[in-house]
Amino acid sequence: KLPPGWEKRMFRSNGTVYYFNHITNASQFERPSG
């Protein structure tokens, strides 16, 4: 389970998975720990 605010997303163009935090508007490719 991801830390609060984080969700898994995917770029439609190339299928790359990334993680987005809707609380802080942060995004990263590494899976957030917590």
Rank of each mutant, 00 (worst) to 15 (best):
K1S: 14
K1D: 14
K1I: 12
K1E: 15
K1H: 12
K1L: 13
K1G: 10
K1M: 10
K1A: 15
K1W: 12
K1R: 11
L2D: 15
L2I: 05
L2Q: 01
L2R: 04
L2N: 01
L2A: 01
L2Y: 01
L2V: 08
L2P: 15
P3E: 04
P3M: 02
P3S: 02
P3D: 03
P3I: 00
P3V: 02
P3R: 01
P3T: 00
P3C: 08
P4S: 08
P4F: 09
P4R: 06
P4A: 09
P4H: 08
P4Q: 06
P4D: 10
P4I: 07
G5I: 01
G5K: 00
G5V: 00
G5N: 05
G5T: 00
G5A: 03
G5S: 02
G5M: 02
G5D: 05
G5H: 07
G5R: 01
G5C: 07
W6E: 02
W6D: 01
W6T: 04
W6I: 00
W6F: 01
W6K: 02
W6Q: 01
W6R: 01
W6N: 01
E7L: 07
E7Y: 03
E7T: 09
E7V: 10
E7D: 04
E7H: 08
E7I: 09
E7G: 07
E7S: 09
E7A: 08
E7M: 05
K8T: 07
K8D: 04
K8P: 02
K8F: 05
K8G: 04
K8M: 14
K8H: 05
R9M: 10
R9P: 02
R9D: 04
R9S: 04
R9N: 06
R9A: 04
R9G: 03
R9F: 05
R9K: 10
M10Q: 11
M10E: 11
M10T: 11
M10L: 11
M10F: 13
M10W: 13
M10K: 10
M10G: 05
M10R: 12
M10A: 09
F11A: 10
F11V: 15
F11M: 14
F11R: 13
F11T: 14
F11S: 15
F11N: 15
F11I: 15
F11H: 15
R12L: 14
R12E: 15
R12Q: 14
R12S: 14
R12P: 14
R12D: 15
R12K: 13
R12H: 14
S13A: 08
S13L: 08
S13W: 08
S13F: 09
S13G: 11
S13D: 13
S13N: 10
S13V: 10
N14P: 04
N14T: 14
N14S: 14
N14F: 01
N14L: 08
N14V: 03
N14E: 08
N14Y: 05
N14M: 03
G15H: 09
G15M: 06
G15D: 07
G15T: 08
G15A: 09
G15F: 11
G15W: 04
G15S: 09
T16M: 12
T16G: 08
T16R: 12
T16E: 14
T16I: 15
T16S: 14
T16K: 14
T16H: 12
T16L: 14
T16D: 09
V17S: 09
V17R: 03
V17D: 08
V17T: 08
V17Y: 12
V17A: 08
V17G: 05
V17L: 06
V17P: 08
Y18R: 03
Y18V: 04
Y18T: 00
Y18E: 07
Y18S: 01
Y18G: 07
Y18P: 03
Y18F: 07
Y19A: 00
Y19R: 00
Y19K: 00
Y19P: 06
Y19D: 04
Y19H: 05
Y19T: 00
Y19F: 06
Y19M: 00
F20S: 02
F20T: 05
F20D: 07
F20V: 09
F20N: 00
F20P: 09
F20I: 07
F20G: 05
F20M: 01
N21Y: 03
N21W: 04
N21M: 04
N21L: 11
H22L: 15
H22T: 15
H22R: 11
H22A: 11
H22S: 13
H22K: 11
H22P: 09
H22V: 15
I23H: 11
I23L: 10
I23T: 08
I23D: 09
I23E: 12
I23S: 05
I23N: 07
I23W: 04
I23P: 02
T24F: 06
T24N: 06
T24V: 02
T24A: 02
T24S: 06
T24M: 01
T24W: 09
T24R: 03
T24L: 04
T24Q: 05
T24E: 05
T24K: 02
T24Y: 05
T24P: 03
N25I: 05
N25H: 15
N25G: 15
N25W: 04
N25V: 08
N25Q: 12
N25S: 09
N25R: 11
N25D: 07
A26G: 06
A26S: 11
A26N: 09
A26K: 14
A26V: 14
A26P: 01
A26L: 11
S27D: 04
S27N: 04
S27R: 14
S27T: 14
S27K: 14
S27P: 00
S27A: 12
S27H: 13
S27G: 06
S27W: 15
Q28F: 02
Q28V: 03
Q28M: 03
Q28L: 03
Q28K: 02
Q28P: 00
Q28R: 02
Q28N: 03
Q28Y: 03
Q28G: 03
F29D: 09
F29T: 10
F29H: 09
F29L: 12
F29R: 12
F29A: 13
F29P: 06
F29V: 10
E30P: 06
E30G: 08
E30A: 03
E30V: 06
E30Y: 02
E30D: 11
E30M: 02
E30F: 02
E30N: 05
E30K: 03
E30S: 01
E30I: 05
E30H: 06
R31I: 13
R31K: 10
R31E: 10
R31A: 08
R31N: 10
R31Q: 07
R31L: 09
R31D: 11
R31F: 14
P32H: 01
P32D: 01
P32A: 02
P32F: 01
P32E: 01
P32T: 02
P32L: 01
P32R: 00
S33H: 10
S33M: 13
S33D: 12
S33F: 12
S33Q: 11
S33L: 13
S33Y: 13
G34H: 11
G34R: 10
G34T: 12
G34S: 11
G34Q: 11
G34E: 13
G34C: 05
G34L: 12
G34K: 09
G34P: 12
